[in-house]
Simulated assay, not measured.
Amino acid sequence: MTRTLTPSDERFHALLRTFEGRPAATAGRAKDVVNEPMIRHWCEAMGDSNPNYTGPDAIAPPTMLQAWTMGGLSGHTDRSSAYDELFELLDGAGCTSVVATDCEQEYLRPLRPGDTVTFDAVIESVSPRKTTKLGTGHFVTTRMDVRANGEPAGTHRFRILKYAPAARPQTAGPETARPQTAPQRPRRPRPVINRDNQGFWDGVREHRLLIQRCTACRTLRFPWLPGCNACSSPEWDTVEASGAGTVYSYVVMHHPPFPAFDPPYAVALVELAEGVRIIGNITGVPYDKVRIGLPVHLEFLRVDDTLELPVFRGGAG
């Protein structure tokens, strides 16, 4: 959603656009060559058992493209000042919060163990002022061109929203409070339902957690996909999860506070008894007591009048 721009907005956006085309990193170099341990860790975390990622002729999963360019906690010394200067301008305009919105990747050649990864990054675009449910600000898109041993390997576009948080609704004081008109709680974001995952959400409405199963090789998969990632067969049926699982990994969300969410809370990658993994909230256990290996069991939480979600309650159930 774009609001009508005032002249001052147009001048500010014109200033922001002077950063388009400026380098964010030049002649960057990955801290490590493409290597089997990182590939293995990635595949284990993603639950991806594709045989192309193991053995003497292994390639790296294409979606790892950005991972090889990350600078870790110490960062990269080849980063330019343009990105910091742009952020200072946006901070000065009140856009002090940031959230990652999406990324796009294009693959030109596979990456293999031993490849040396280099890259250049450029600030590709800065949007006009936009108004979202989080607040008002500007989308900044960075394009990274990745090379392997000097050859083009892929392109990674990363988009963030730098925004001024929307004001929270003010509740009335005691002298003006109207108990009969309590402020309505904001609704949770709606899940994106399409032809590939419609069956999963149909199951949730019936309080069933359904896992896809390839009818050709019998491999279970989650999240739902249009084809098997083990044998590529498009044919599948479903099995119903028992609901038992353990916490495989987790994070505790503290900031920023979004409408309809009350941080801090724990979000976990749960390994189900069937062997697949699913992301969900942990309930029944204080957020600071969640641990890897914690037994959990499935339950369904109604968050508003039209949305119910699978969550996991701590304890053996």
Rank of each mutant, 00 (worst) to 15 (best):
residue 1 M to Y: 09
residue 7 P to D: 13
residue 14 A to R: 14
residue 20 E to S: 04
residue 22 R to N: 03
residue 23 P to Q: 08
residue 23 P to C: 05
residue 24 A to D: 09
residue 25 A to E: 11
residue 26 T to C: 10
residue 27 A to H: 10
residue 40 R to H: 13
residue 40 R to T: 15
residue 42 W to Q: 02
residue 42 W to Y: 15
residue 43 C to Q: 01
residue 45 A to W: 01
residue 45 A to E: 01
residue 50 N to A: 06
residue 52 N to D: 12
residue 63 T to C: 11
residue 67 A to I: 05
residue 67 A to P: 02
residue 77 T to H: 09
residue 77 T to Y: 11
residue 77 T to P: 09
residue 83 Y to D: 14
residue 92 G to S: 11
residue 93 A to D: 12
residue 94 G to M: 06
residue 94 G to S: 09
residue 98 V to N: 14
residue 99 V to G: 00
residue 100 A to M: 07
residue 103 C to T: 09
residue 104 E to V: 08
residue 112 R to F: 02
residue 121 A to T: 15
residue 121 A to P: 02
residue 128 P to W: 09
residue 130 K to F: 03
residue 133 K to L: 14
residue 134 L to F: 15
residue 136 T to L: 01
residue 145 D to P: 03
residue 148 A to G: 15
residue 159 R to L: 06
residue 162 K to A: 10
residue 162 K to N: 11
residue 173 G to K: 08
residue 173 G to L: 06
residue 173 G to F: 06
residue 174 P to F: 08
residue 190 R to T: 15
residue 191 P to I: 12
residue 192 V to N: 03
residue 193 I to L: 02
residue 193 I to E: 05
residue 199 G to C: 05
residue 200 F to C: 01
residue 209 L to Q: 01
residue 213 R to V: 12
residue 216 A to Y: 08
residue 226 P to A: 10
residue 229 N to M: 12
residue 233 S to K: 08
residue 235 E to G: 09
residue 238 T to F: 13
residue 239 V to K: 03
residue 239 V to S: 04
residue 242 S to P: 01
residue 246 T to C: 01
residue 247 V to T: 08
residue 250 Y to N: 00
residue 250 Y to G: 00
residue 254 H to D: 02
residue 255 H to L: 13
residue 256 P to Q: 06
residue 256 P to T: 12
residue 270 V to S: 04
residue 272 L to S: 02
residue 273 A to Y: 03
residue 274 E to N: 12
residue 276 V to H: 05
residue 281 N to T: 06
residue 286 P to V: 01
residue 288 D to Q: 05
residue 290 V to Q: 08
residue 291 R to D: 09
residue 296 V to G: 00
residue 299 E to G: 03
residue 303 V to E: 09
residue 303 V to P: 02
residue 308 E to N: 07
residue 315 G to K: 07
residue 317 G to S: 12
residue 317 G to E: 09
